[in-house]
Amino acid sequence: MMDILQLILLWFGIYYIVAVSLNMEFGYAGIPNFGKALSVLVGAISVGGILNRLLIWYFGVKGDLIEGSTFAIARMNEIIAAHPLAGIFLLLIAILLAMVVGFVVGMIFILPSAKLKADYLGVTLLAISEAIFLVCVYNLSIIGGYYGISTPDILAFAPGEKRGWIFAGIVLVFAFLSFLFMEKLLNTPYGRVLKAMRENEDVVKCFGRDIMKLRMRTMAIGSAIGAIAGVLYSFYTGNIVANSFTRVEWTFFPFLMILLGGKGNNKGVALGVLAYVIVIVFLDIYKYDIKEIFHIPFEPVWLTYILFGITMLLILYYKPTGLIPERPVKTPPVKRIMED
C-alpha cells in the first residue's frame, strides 16, 4: 500500500508540472498545444543528449553515446555516492539546462501560429511534436532512441528502501514550486491579457497588444516548465527510452487532467491531476484482476485508453468547467473590489 502511495505522489508531482504549464498555455492563453509532449521530451534530451555528453567529455570516456554513457555514469554515480551534494547539484544543473533549452524550443515551436489558428494550429503542433518524437526514437545518436540510455543516479548516496520516498519528495517540491510560480505569474495583468487573448484575439489586438509576442513568451515559459518534468522523469526511471514520450501520456493525459480539474484554475488542475493519477495507478496495478472479475474480452492495457475517452466525453458533456471552475485573475485591487 505504501508503494502505491509513493507511486501516486510521484506521478502526481510529475504530471502536475506538465499540466500546470499546459494550463497556462491552453487554459489561460487558449493555445491548443497538442504538442505538449515535446517539452517533456526536451527535458529528456537535456539529460540524455546534453548532460550525458558533457559527462562523457568530462571523464574522457571513449565510445559512442550509448556505450560511453554507461561508463561515464558509473563514474558519476561513484562521486554522488561519496558526495550527496554532487547529486543535487547535478539535478539542478540538468533542470536549469532543460529550462533554457525548453524556453528556446517553445519560442520556435509556436511560430506556425502566425499563420494558423485553432484546430489547424493544434494539428500542426501535434505533427511537429510527433515528427521530433519519431526522429528521437529512430535516431539512436540523440538520446539512444528505442535502445535507451542510462542517466546518472542522483540519489546514489541513499539506501535502497528510502530512495523512492526521497525522489517523490523532490518531485513534489518542484511541483509545488511550479504551482507557486504560476499563481504568482498569472494573478497579474499578464494572466488577464492571456485570458482575454483566449476569448477574442481581435479585441486584444485592437487594444494594442502584439499577439505573436504574447504567444511566444507564453510558450517559452510553458515549455521551460514542462521540460522540468522531463528531467525528473528521466532521473526517476534511470534509463531514458525515447519511446516513452508519447503523445497520449504527455499531451492527451495532461489535457484531460486540466479539463477534469478546471481549465484556467491552477488548484483545480491539481485536483484533476490527483484524481486521474489515482485512477491510472490503480488501473495499472489491478488491470489483470479487473479483467478476471469482469471477464473483459480484450487486453486490459486498453482500459486506460477507454477510460480516457469516456471521462473526456463525460466532462465535456456534463461539466465543461471542470471540478473547480475558473476564477477571475485576482490582482490586489481587483481582489478588493470582488470582496466589497
Binding site: 505569474l185 495583468p189 487594444f207 494594442g208 477571475p328
Partner: peptide, 23 residues
C-alpha cells in the same frame, strides 16, 4: 465582442495596457 468568460471589470481593464502584461 465581449470577452465572455471575463468579468465586466476585467473587460474594461483590457482597454488599457499595463506594464505587468509582460511576464
Amino acid at each position: 465582442q465581449p470577452l465572455k468568460e471575463l468579468t465586466v471589470l476585467e473587460n474594461l481593464l483590457i482597454g488599457a495596457i499595463n506594464p505587468g502584461e509582460s511576464p
